[in-house]
Design a protein around this nucleic acid. Structure first.
Lengths: 188, 188
DNA sequence: ATCGCTTCTTAACAAATGTGAACGGAAAGG
DNA sequence: CCTTTCCGTTCACATTTGTTAAGAAGCGAT
């Protein structure tokens, strides 16, 4: 059932089958309906989670407007590291844009897992680095590319999201207004 | 001599004095002249380093233009995780904007350190998360703030860099042209 | 299917940022 | 010390993006 996650994990840190079983024991399945929250602003994040199916969005509110900074979907990990690791109230929220099925790992379970098998620490490191690289690329795109170029790149790299994420969220993610995105889309 | 680094490390992961000594044994001091490179594009990064003094800049070339994505200075760690961890050629360069004194840690030494004391793995995790948070904030600023707001925020948060980094680099970091930055600076 | 609400589109105009060029001063190198 | 190059500034004008407002289209709930 969770083959994809486990095969991926094995290839990253050469986990044994017993490691996998160990890890599996600490996960619990969790469901979030479309529009509901994985993490609300002000809460301390207690879990990270692997997305079995569905779609989540990290975002902040600026001037009453929801501004996304990340979209995560099936076969990705969702977490707000800043709140989760430091146990501080989140200055950001995460909500489901679709009905979403998760495999959750709590903070305490994660710490136990790290004690029992330090390779899992290296694994978490690995995933953090992946997110870091993505975020750095997004920042570079915002600094260097025009609005039009950012949209075309988004379309090329995440074509599935174009139809799963409302356009005003995509616009905000790209740092432009919905009307501007509409204008860009109209050109050819 | 390295009190600041060691005190910081101790407070993060409750390292003992012998841990600190262990770590210290794996570091070597390294000097980079202003304008020289910590990492060239195309090279595989072999080290991370703690900056004792000086200033470095991560950047990419776009249209023949150097576009910074990070400035790091004394008491911070400099690294290009993507190349260093995956042993892939860097798609980015890091150079010194001032004469810079580093404490370097090689990839092999880091791995040894992780074997001998897994806490160091948690420490690396911690520093990666810090950079991640900074980068995510920078991306959000680029998406949400106007050029003027980005500049004022930069001035407020990193006032020392205003005088240490050439303005055309700051402009590129903020995602604007040098002339626009000049115009913003002129207004009062 | 209909109603009500949200999202998307369009347009005219305003504001912000980019472009190209010129100038002057600062810094670097001989 | 002089020369050369680089950097920061300024300006006029072009282009991009934002703003405001309105209507069309999509979507959910009844």
């Amino acid at each position: 059932m969770f083959d994809r996650l486990f095969n991926e994990i094995k290839s990253i840190e050469s986990f044994s089958d017993s490691d996998i079983e160990l890890g599996n024991g600490f996960l619990d399945e969790f469901f979030i309906e479309k529009g509901d929250y994985f993490l609300k602003e002000g809460q301390v994040s207690r879990h990270v989670a692997y997305i079995k199916s569905g779609l989540t969005m990290h975002y902040r509110i600026y001037d009453g407007l929801e501004v996304p900074c990340d979209f995560l979907r099936e076969n990705q990990w969702v977490a707000y590291i800043k709140s989760f690791m430091n146990k501080t109230p989140a200055d950001m929220a995460i909500k489901a844009l679709e009905d979403t099925v998760l495999l959750r790992l709590s903070y305490n379970n994660m710490q136990q897992l790290f004690q029992l098998q330090p390779k899992f620490l290296a694994l978490k490191n690995y995933y953090t680095e992946l997110s870091f690289i993505d975020t750095a690329q997004h920042a570079a795109d915002l600094a260097v590319l025009s609005a039009k170029e950012r949209y075309h790149k988004f379309m090329k790299e995440k074509p599935d999201l174009i139809n799963r994420v409302p356009q005003y969220y995509i616009a905000a993610y790209l740092g432009i207004k919905p009307q501007s995105l509409s204008r860009i889309r109209k050109e050819r």
